[in-house]
Design a protein around this nucleic acid. Structure first.
Length: 577
RNA sequence: GCUCCCGUAGCUCAGCUGGAUAGAGCAUCGGAUUUCUAAUCCGACGGUCGCAGGUUCGAAUCCUGCCGGGGGCGCCA
């Protein structure tokens, strides 16, 4: 669709804002906001505008009169059948049904279902997933990966240039211990079979030894220094750890259908660290304290931040500053977005503040999400109650396979497995994406793998049924020509469906702007519910010619919207379930 | 001690830049399948939106305090 074309909400908002401006020009209310949004209830029309009530306070006048005056000033609009003032001063907007049907036909002709290219010409760097080398990915990693990937897809869909960067934890102090562990404890057979598991084992063993044996800890520090000084043997070992870990991560990303433009660990920026510290010192931000270099952030109401340890090593904040510097130089992004759990809020507040003070001019955004917990409390590596990500995905696929075999016993086995994979993985992703990211998640198998109600399988099932409708139509009416018949909206549920379909672009925009994929998930669930009601209660293949074609076209649009929406969430849509 | 987040139906959660009678799913109960995929649909039951103040025509939403839960706070990332 023409990028100039905006969403229904935007068009109506401009119309209403103009109306208010014209009606109250003399009051110099040029900056008036008159947002139009979807009506909260069907009986209040299709869209509503609540600006009159806010204005009433400023003008000290009756809100209903203000609303009336605005409607008078607005005059007729080609899309709008009528406006009504209701309640305390709500303006309820009723759209012409014929216009809705026309709009559906425009959307149908557009590859992006009417979504404007809002991000055209802008670049956004998305920093997500970012697991640590030599540690397995567990259920705590899935939110960053799945939410980050959904934001990735949403931005791309809106025309942004997206740089998805997997900022691996590959340059920490753990490598000294890891090298010591490798030299003394490694089991090569185990390393070949389950690399990360073995790396984790030798790390834990080395860590435990360091706690009781100071000499061991000293050796580990020495190994770390050698690595940081670029000793070839140490670098080779480090590279081995990274490669082995990455290989396993990639297997999980493949299963999750997640891909990155860049996989640059912290190590990528290590040559910049000294320069960043120089910059901070030049600007008078970094000062010496107890042998370390620290930045005071009292003005910002934040605790001080250590940017260089007393032993000369650099900290996370410094590394992140170097990363920002590099990203600005290379990509000139309009935003750099980090997707991590809530525990890093303070860190990001500190490092954003330092970046600002140091003149690293970038729109830095921290999208944080609540920590995943188990019903019995937080999970931790120490207590051994972590749930590994691959195991969870296996379980999801197994449960889905049982359902598919039950529902479609005649389906070829390979297809059953393929469908089960899509459904199982979809269920896991949706369980995360359908909630407000900023809430604690209590992990339960049944919830994460829920297959009915508000779940990915419900949406996938709705989609599969529509696909079946399309096929049956072509089968039974081989010479039917859908394009020959216009879309008509006779039944109330058809109109409801239309109203939801035209809102898709604004939902996508809002979900992207607020970094809240769950807004899109909510919308899709609502759309699928409305469709299921339509499917159950309105005949279409059995309807008379014309009506039949109109309804099949409507089905087609719902299918495309569901498919597109689920695709933006990274969830597949099998044609059959 | 300082600080951030959360508290909505029995359970899991939406709704939060103030708007109309607070919504879903699960669970429970009742109904729908000779007919387009029943992983479905239709209906019922279920709430002092943690508590108390405040701002406002209007508060789950904003402010203050308290209670309860979780996270973070100088040499980890």
């Amino acid at each position: 669709m023409d990028p100039k074309i905006s969403t229904v909400e935007e068009t109506l908002t401009i119309w209403m804002a103009d109306a208010f401006r014209n009606a109250f020009r003399k009051k110099e209310l040029s900056d008036i906001h008159a947002p139009v949004s979807a009506a909260t209830d069907e009986k209040f029309g299709d869209f509503q505008c609540n600006a009159a009530m806010g204005l009433a306070r400023v003008l000290k006048r009756n809100p209903r009169e203000i609303a009336d005056q605005a409607i008078q000033a607005a005059g007729p609009h080609p899309w709008v059948e009528r406006c009504e003032v209701a309640g305390a001063g709500f303006i309820n907007i009723f759209l012409r049904t014929e216009w809705l049907a026309d709009r559906l036909q425009e959307i149908e002709a557009d590859t992006k279902l009417g979504t404007p290219a809002a991000g055209k010409g802008r670049t956004v760097v998305l920093d997500y997933s970012s697991p640590n080398v030599a540690k397995p990915m567990h259920i705590g990693h899935i939110r960053s990966t799945v939410i980050g990937n959904a934001l990735d897809r949403l931005h791309r869909f809106l025309g942004y240039r997206v740089i998805a960067d997997n900022h691996l934890g590959d340059w920490g102090t753990q490598f000294g211990l890891l090298i010591m562990g490798y030299r003394h404890f490694v089991d090569r057979a185990a390393l070949g079979a389950h690399p990360i598991q073995e790396l984790e084992r030798i790390y834990v063993k080395s860590y435990e030894k360091s706690r009781e044996d100071p000499a061991w800890l000293d050796d580990a520090r020495r190994e770390l220094v050698k690595l940081q000084q670029g000793d070839p043997d140490h670098l080779a070992l480090w590279q081995l750890f990274v490669d082995l870990s990455l290989k396993e991560f990639e297997e999980i990303y493949r299963r999750l259908d997640v891909s990155f433009d860049l996989v640059r660990g912290e190590s990528y920026y290590r040559d910049r660290l000294a320069g960043v510290l120089d910059l901070l010192r030049q600007k008078g931000l970094a000062v010496e304290s107890e042998g370390a270099q620290v930045v005071h952030l009292e003005e910002e109401g934040l605790p001080l931040c250590i940017v260089q340890k007393s032993d000369g090593g650099y900290n996370y904040a410094t590394s992140d500053l170097a990363t920002v510097q590099s990203r600005i130089e290379e990509f000139d992004p309009s935003a750099i977005v980090y997707v991590t759990d809530e525990r890093q809020q303070l860190h990001f507040n500190q490092f954003f503040a330092i970046a600002r003070k140091a003149g690293l001019d970038a729109n830095l955004v921290h999208v944080w999400f609540g920590l995943m917990r188990l019903p019995e409390g937080t999970f931790s590596t120490r207590e051994g109650n972590v749930i590994k990500l691959d195991r969870m995905l296996d379980e999801a696929e197994a449960r889905a396979l049982a359902l598919v075999k039950d529902a479609s016993p005649d389906m070829p086995e390979a297809q059953q497995k393929d469908v089960a994979r899509a459904v199982g993985i979809g269920a896991v992703k949706y369980a995360d994406l359908s909630q407000n990211p900023q809430s604690l998640i209590t992990f339960t198998w049944d919830k994460a793998l829920s297959m009915d109600g508000n779940s990915a399988p419900y949406l996938q099932y709705a989609y599969a049924r529509i696909s079946s409708v399309q096929d049956k139509y072509r089968e039974r009416f081989p010479e039917g020509d859908l394009a020959k018949w216009p879309i008509v909206l006779n039944e109330a549920v058809e109109r409801r469906l239309a109203l939801r379909l035209v809102r898709f672009p604004s939902v996508v925009l809002r979900a992207t702007e607020l970094y809240r994929p769950n807004l899109l998930a909510d919308y899709l669930y609502d759309l699928a519910q409305t469709y299921s009601s339509f499917y159950q209660n309105v005949p279409f293949l059995k309807a008379e010619e014309g009506l039949r074609e109109s309804r099949v076209r409507l089905c087609g649009l719902v299918a495309r919207t569901l498919r597109q929406g689920l695709n933006l969430l990274g969830i597949e849509t099998p044609e059959r379930i």
